[in-house]
Amino acid sequence: MNHKELKELIEFLVEKDIAEFELERGDVKIRIKRGAEPGAIHTPDPRYFAVHSAPPPAPEVGVHPVTAESPTTAPATAAAPAPVENLHIVHSPIVGTYYESPSPGSPPFVKVGDTVEVGQVVCIVEAMKLMNEIESDVAGEVVKKLITNGQPIEYGQDLFAIRPRA
């Protein structure tokens, strides 16, 4: 991935307001967590403003729970993703090997950022030459792929995080 692609990716994450993102492709691993740096100033998170609106030398320091936090850690805490914001998890019904595409070399069923419908196939889990098509049981946006291609998985293991359509 080059700088341009990386920039586009970050812009996409900002646009879609995605707080955290992880991608592993071959030996490249990218992890982006937004909001931990001052660049997140525009984040319309009320807690964030609560922190900054409190004047550091104010007498309430040590009393108010929010302002009690040190200024360096406060923005990070404040801008962290809203408590796991109700992401829906797709689980595996069997033990097996995870495949992200219908056959080796073909494009994956879904990518992070894709919109899926109920019943759409999102991956295959194989055990003993039994190919199990895993469908999304919710409509929404794929926020995170939790397993890498070819990895063995257990019964009930989390496969995808999907933000349900409002």
């Binding site: 019904p93 190919m131 199990n132």
Partner: peptide, 10 residues
């Protein structure tokens, strides 16, 4: 033999 399945968790 190739077996294909469409299943929910249970």
């Amino acid at each position: 033999i190739l077996t294909e399945m469409n299943a929910e968790v249970t």
